[in-house]
Nucleic acid binder design. Structure first.
Lengths: 343, 343
DNA sequence: CTGAAAGCGCTAACAA
DNA sequence: TTGTTAGCGCTTTCAG
């Protein structure tokens, strides 16, 4: 079961050469049917498994893919990783996960580490701090397979899988507007991230459509993506202390949404009586919140799967890829009572 | 940055032999200070990184560890994996994660797969369905490094990291009793799992201490660990339909606790007015629930770290390990309003 | 149809 | 102190 039989063992046992055994195992045609059968049966009997490390060394491929995300313990990313693993596993790749904790330095280090591990490709979701994407550009130009998902680099022309952030944001904002909220604040991640900008655009477009003014003071960026509780708390307090206090907040990032809820609770605000809330999150328990939370949910599992499919296809492509695709998937707006206007 | 310089390249460039370069790089003493400096400087300059695959082949070690858990998208396990990664990364190991989805067959397949990948050791948390642990016994007897965490195999004498399930359970149950609940049901995972039995024992001991009868009808097992929503729903409904309906439920597993909350909400029951609740979970948002949920929380991150430390120590031990340790860590009881008696 | 041998990158025993 | 060489498991020319 776990003793490693090698090709050599088989060759010796059967009085053949290693190359013959190798050929038999790989279904080569230039081999006698007899010998082939013999080898296959014996291999089966001893439960022979080729040594993947030897194969990797030979093929100059590690059969592993590197993943760069901000955090594993995050609903969106744990679901995405689930999707990544599910595909990778079936295709014979393993997955090396690294976390940036929203730091650009750690992101760079992780990428270098993954490369030194000779991963065959990279699945990347940028850190909130990242504005310099030159390392990816460099690698991509060299022909190294990279697929971005969710937090993509606008200026690297490779494969990307993203949600329809504009629409997700637009719909949620419009929902708040239709519910009767007129002073809607927007709490979002670092502006470095394209998703932040797209989500802001959706937010803004909904305001425009309904002839609501956009107040710059209503826009708050948490540049550490909610990693630093105090940063979020400060932002929320600033919103609440404004002369014309917002009557609702639309939050544009998973972790931020949760942090925001914690802070509003801590401050003793009633939702939605004191303030309405809607936000991006993939939490499976938003329904259980007090009050149940209106959310924009992304198909994280599928996004992980799609990104991995494309990455592996790129890795295994015989030809240099020229056409890089950007796949966009739809978000889902789940309406609950946190976005009802009750005052 | 990503061109792979090899020892051979360095040797050629410097007019040395590969072995000299190797020795210089590995800080061997049997080498001239001059040469060493030369090599190191050049290696630094071209950013030489040893090929881990070649190393693995040579050392007959993959520098990877296999992880077997039921699910990644689960608060407890995603936190544990976070801990696992944090240690493994620093020690130069990578982590291959596999999921059982609570199926014994998948668990067996995963273990075989990991072995064929030549992982150097295994970090295992059993599936709810697993009662046959012979594959682990077999491997362990062969000297293969295995560390169990959380859901351990009682009959395999290897390293184990577990929470103090008895006490966690006892304390939570006693809390419910002290709050005034007298008819406390126990919703738990498959009895195959030692943690289920330990948690039941803690539950039972608290009842005994307070002279409360244990009603067998109040004990419900969900053998699929909450993976099958209908199973949980049936169990909860059976409890609610009993002649002497329980006035509280103590839930003994992360996923089950969440499922139970979903179902009670769906059935329109008010917590804690209609029924009190406390349960094991590592959710970071239990505070936001309606009502805030009283939980038993495990130090999942640390458990992951400890398990990985011990596994790597075992892997790297020069001597066959004889003494296998079982580390027990304390749980934390976080008291919130779901366990208050309001009727 | 089958075997011998080289080579993937690296280490280590053996020579010099 | 340095170089030569074999070998880790496998595939793949090149001979036979």
């Amino acid at each position: 079961m776990f003793e490693a039989y090698t090709i050599k063992d088989i060759a010796k046992a059967l009085g053949l050469s290693t190359s013959t055994v190798s050929r038999a195992l790989n279904g080569s045609y230039e081999i006698g049917a007899e010998t082939k059968k013999l080898v296959l049966e014996y291999a089966e009997k001893v439960n022979y498994r080729p040594n993947p490390i030897a194969l990797s060394l030979k093929e100059q491929k590690s059969h592993s893919i590197g993943v760069v995300v901000c955090e594993v313990a995050n609903d969106y990313f744990s679901q995405a990783i689930n999707g990544i693993e599910s595909i990778a596993y079936n295709r014979g790749y393993h997955v090396i996960i690294t976390q940036t904790h929203e730091s650009f330095d750690r992101e760079s280090t992780n990428v270098k580490h993954l490369l030194s591990r000779h991963v065959d490709g990279l699945l990347v979701s940028l850190s909130a701090e990242t504005s310099d994407t030159s390392q990816y550009k460099y690698l991509h130009d060299k022909g190294f397979p990279i697929v971005f998902f969710d937090r993509v680099a606008a200026d690297v022309n490779t494969h990307k899988i993203i949600a329809n952030n504009f629409k997700g944001s637009f719909d949620a904002t419009e929902l708040l507007i239709n519910a009767g909220f007129t002073k809607i604040a927007h709490l979002t991640n670092s502006n470095n991230l394209l998703i932040s900008r797209e989500r802001f655009d959706g937010f803004k477009a909904a305001l425009d459509k309904h002839q609501l003014d956009f107040k710059p003071g209503y826009l708050k960026h948490c540049n550490h993506g909610g990693m630093i509780q105090d940063e979020v708390e400060l932002a929320v307090k600033e919103l609440l202390n404004m002369d014309e206090r917002p009557d609702a907040i639309f939050v544009a990032s998973d972790r931020l949404t949760i942090s925001c809820m914690h802070i509003l609770k801590k401050l003793g605000l009633k939702i939605p009586q004191d303030i309405g809330i809607a936000g991006f999150t993939n939490s499976d328990v938003a329904e259980l919140f007090d009050p149940p939370l209106t959310v924009v949910r992304q198909p994280a599992f599928q996004i992980g799967q799609m990104a991995t499919e494309i990455l592996i296809k790129t890795i295994e492509s015989k030809w240099p890829i020229e056409d890089f695709i950007t796949e966009q998937v739809e978000t889902e707006l789940i309406i609950r009572s946190s976005s009802q206007r009750l005052f």
